[in-house]
């Protein structure tokens, strides 16, 4: 599609006299600025400035209102020895890693299936897309009912003792429920990206491989997966970043419980406003920001290397 567009524009630019061409370029620049400035302003006022205000208050004992005073780095030092903060980081990172793996594995398998020669392909693709358009909190409440009431009832019917207590009430396995539900919701967006990637692979490559006698597994390992690796990287980065911010699904499923087994960093930070620890949780937010920034930079480095390999 891009090729014809380039052909159309090129003669136009070359036949135009030099004067108007520069004027047109300047005009184009102004258009870009007009598009850019509101976004930059909005971002600065509502994200950067508020972020800086939050960083400022992380050095105080502010509750969000009323009297306050500077307390230096005490909020930060207090964080280091707080097992609840450390556990929330541990849980969040573990959850993000596992969910990223699960989502990518499931989405890739589904994408291959939905890209094959099957009946009802469009309809099936539509059905698999549904979880993406439902709000996370709604999904969480529905699954909450399934886990706490429907699943134990079914287990009782089947005489399966281990399944009779809800997984959400199990301190060691509640995280798995959170992973399952999050993956259920997050798979479609990864699936779309994989489908796009699969459709971009030319049919001829497979035909040639088939002629050479390559089986299904061999074709996946030597053709599909290497050609999809760029999409795997995109899905991993987008997914991981999103899962680090886990909030709504956990709130609807376990509310951080049982105990504090599924308390994510975002939930801990949000508790500060109600709990009178606004400033302390601001410090936590600053640390979490630095952490996510570091993860993103690492991933960016990794992508750069990948791009070199692919080209």
């Amino acid at each position: 599609m891009s090729a014809p567009a380039a052909i159309k524009t090129r003669p136009a630019r070359s036949t135009a006299p030099p004067g108007p061409a520069t004027a047109r370029r300047r005009k184009a620049d102004r258009t870009y600025y007009l598009m850019l400035v509101p976004a930059v302003l909005l971002f600065t006022v509502f994200i950067s400035l508020t972020g800086l205000v939050g960083m400022f208050y992380s050095l105080t004992n502010y509750a969000g209102f009323g009297d306050w005073k500077f307390i230096g780095l005490r909020n930060y030092t207090s964080m280091l020895g707080d097992p609840r903060i450390l556990e929330s980081y541990g849980f969040t990172i573990w959850f993000a890693v596992v969910t990223t793996v699960v989502v990518n594995a499931v989405a890739l398998l589904l994408a291959i299936g939905l890209n094959g020669r099957i009946k009802w392909k469009t309809g099936l693709r539509g059905i698999y897309f549904i979880p993406m358009v439902i709000s996370g909190i709604v999904i969480a409440y529905v699954f909450n009912y399934l886990f706490s009431t429907a699943a134990p009832a079914l287990a009782t019917q089947l005489g399966w003792t281990a399944g009779q207590s809800s997984i959400l009430a199990n301190e060691n396995w509640a995280w798995l429920a959170v992973v399952i539900v999050t993956a259920w919701q997050a798979t479609p967006s990864a699936l779309i990206i994989y489908l796009a990637g699969l459709m971009a692979i030319p049919k001829e490559v497979y035909e040639a491989a088939e002629l050479d006698g390559a089986g299904g597994w061999r074709r996946f390992r030597s053709i599909t997966f290497p050609l999809l690796i760029g999409y795997v990287v995109i899905n991993t980065i987008l997914g991981f970043k999103g899962f680090l911010n886990a909030y709504d699904i956990i709130v609807g499923l376990t509310n951080g419980g049982p105990g504090t087994a599924t308390m994510s960093v975002a939930m801990t930070i949000f508790s500060g406003f109600d709990g009178g620890e606004y400033a302390f949780q601001m410090a936590n937010a600053v640390v979490f920001f630095v952490f996510t920034l570091a993860v993103s930079l690492l991933q960016l480095l990794f992508v750069r290397n990948r791009e070199v390999n692919l080209s």
């Binding site: 049982p258 105990g259 508790s271």
Partner: peptide
């Protein structure tokens, strides 16, 4: 208890464990 201490969650843990 201030909201900063998740007493309810701890109680849940106490009664299950």
């Amino acid at each position: 208890f201030p909201g900063a201490i998740p007493l309810g969650n701890y109680l849940q843990e106490l009664l299950i464990g």
